[in-house]
């Protein structure tokens, strides 16, 4: 048995009881397949990066569990039929299961990188591509982009932007 995690996004109009109902539904499928739930993480409501079924927000939940493959198929089948689930994704369990916004790691990252604030007027560097390649801020890569990156990309992706 492997440990998996499934994330699902509920419609924003689903209330708290509804969220718990979906969690319960998954738990029962897992239990029915002789698996066991090892953790439930409610990320709560957050903004979607793009609208899904005309809604801009979704309620995220992550569930970790151990189970056999047929359980995964059943979960997937149920989710597909469920109208209030906007999206779902099941993967092998890995990483930090808590909501992305609340991770201490992120705060540390930000501290390290401190004052990247005023790189605003970097002007025409990314012209023709609309891209600022942010790679942790090493200037080697920035320079490489300034020279080689711009040259290579011209024509290839230029006209599409804007």
């Amino acid at each position: 048995m492997r440990e998996y995690e499934t994330v699902f996004i509920l419609h924003p109009q689903v209330d708290d009881a509804g969220i718990d109902r979906e969690i319960e539904a998954v738990s029962q499928i897992v239990a029915g397949g002789k698996g066991e739930v090892s953790g439930v993480y409610k990320w709560g409501r957050r903004r979607l990066a793009y609208p899904i079924r005309k809604v801009q927000d979704g309620v995220y939940t992550l569930i970790r569990f151990r189970a056999e493959p047929p359980v995964l198929r059943e979960i997937d089948r149920r989710f597909k039929m469920n109208e209030s689930i906007l999206r779902h994704l099941t993967t092998h369990a890995s990483g930090d299961p808590t909501a992305p916004d609340f991770r201490s790691r992120d705060r540390r990252d930000r501290g390290d990188r401190g004052d990247r604030g005023d790189r605003g007027d970097r002007g025409d560097r990314g012209r023709g591509r609309g891209g600022r390649f942010d790679d942790d801020g090493g200037d080697d890569a920035d320079e490489a982009f300034g020279r080689e990156g711009r040259r290579r990309s011209r024509g290839a992706s230029g006209p599409r932007d804007e």
């Binding site: 994330v7 993967t91 990483g95 930090d96 992305p100 609309g130 891209g131 600022r132």
Partner: peptide
């Protein structure tokens, strides 16, 4: 991790 949003934002262009 696909949940590590902060890191992923750095892995994509603003497009």
């Amino acid at each position: 991790d696909y949940k590590d949003e902060r890191r992923l934002m750095r892995a994509i262009t603003d497009r």
